[in-house]
Design a protein around this nucleic acid. Structure first.
Lengths: 202, 202
DNA sequence: TCCAAAAACGGAGATTGCCTCCATTTACAT
DNA sequence: ATGTAAATGGAGGCAATCTCCGTTTTTGGA
């Protein structure tokens, strides 16, 4: 129902319905941005000056609303992916992609949780975009692996999930005495020392 | 109030109060184990055959109850830490500690979230034990670093937060096409290839 | 043994959020 | 203009959190 996400069809919604959908979407973006993904749906309806029933008809679940509210950011992310593709060094390209992914996951506080849920429940409205994210990760990872920049034993799924975990920590930690760069470095290099290092000299 | 966690004082609670506290605690352990940390507190009170008021008097917040319910597991974890200390190879010791930590974080589904929250809000009832966990991580990490087994640039805080992120993913992902071992390996070695590898030969 | 003060109890109910249902209103094709 | 399908909205059911306070229980001194 509503506008088809893929083909931007003219949407055979009645004029008032289309208007309300838009109001709800804008209110949702505001509240999600301000309070995170757990913002009250009734609040959003109220802010959109719309009955709760109307909100739920347009967006049957929180996830559906979330997915719709994320579309702009997703386009942005895809654009960044396109830019990253243009980077010659495949290792750097992978890094750029992962950074862009982190930024995307910060769109709303708490976003990593529903994204992770969507990865496993292939029913979620978020999972379509989710699968795309894993695919992109796969693309960049393979390229880096081909050039010997990334470990060949790492899979896209693992890398994506790790990035998700990292984003989750940053999402809520931020000022826990660590920076995003530091954690990204741990993910990049691991905590173990490169093989063949002796004990430090006295 | 109640029993002091640190010094196991005889607790000047009235007999009925002490009994109820115990009933609540046991019910909480059951429900948290069965349904995760978001189990309904009213349910727990009901299962303990106690009024909601009684539950809240003994444990003013979900976190307080959680902290109390975790005490047994914490002792277990400390014992495991003690065992790990006995491992000669400091790299293996660090690994053993991180594994034990992962297990602890799996005690209840969803546990990583309140633990992370406790790391930043130094007010939480969980934060005392939390700080201990970071300290232990620090201990094992330093030892491994001294022997050249761990990267000297990684801090305990970073490592702990990364482990937390990993636990969070595993907590909810489990069957997302990945195993715990695979993700642990990513954390250990990173996704980047060791420096100085050329492109794969044709 | 008894009793009064202190301690503890418990559950009704205020509040908030989720979501559904359906009587009413609105847009639009004819 | 008007009939009809589409859309609305908010009352209300349900569940969870947490507080408040009248009642009950324990305890220890007399």
């Amino acid at each position: 129902m509503d506008t088809d996400v893929v083909s931007g069809e003219p949407s055979r919604l009645r004029a008032d319905a289309r208007r309300n959908r838009e109001r709800i979407l804008r209110a949702a973006m505001r509240r999600f941005a301000a309070e995170g993904i757990d913002a009250s749906l009734d609040d959003i309806a109220r802010e959109a000056e719309v009955g709760a029933g109307t909100l739920y008809r347009h967006f049957p679940s929180r996830e559906a609303l979330l997915a719709a509210a994320l579309q702009d950011r997703q386009k942005e992310l895809l654009a960044q992916a396109q830019q990253a593709r243009a980077i010659a060094d495949s290792g750097a390209a992978l890094g750029a992609w992962l950074t862009a992914l982190q930024d995307y996951l910060r769109s709303f506080n708490g976003l990593p949780a529903p994204v992770l849920a969507a990865v496993k429940e292939q029913e979620s409205p978020l999972c379509l975009s989710c699968n795309a994210l894993v695919s992109l990760t796969d693309e960049f990872l393979r390229r880096a692996q081909r050039d010997g920049h990334a470990r060949p034993t790492v899979s896209a799924n693992e890398l994506f999930l790790s990035a998700l975990g990292l984003a989750w920590v940053l999402n809520r930690a931020e000022a826990c005495g660590t920076t995003r760069q530091a954690l990204e470095k741990v993910l990049a290099h691991g905590y173990l020392a490169p093989a063949g290092e002796g004990a430090a000299p006295g």
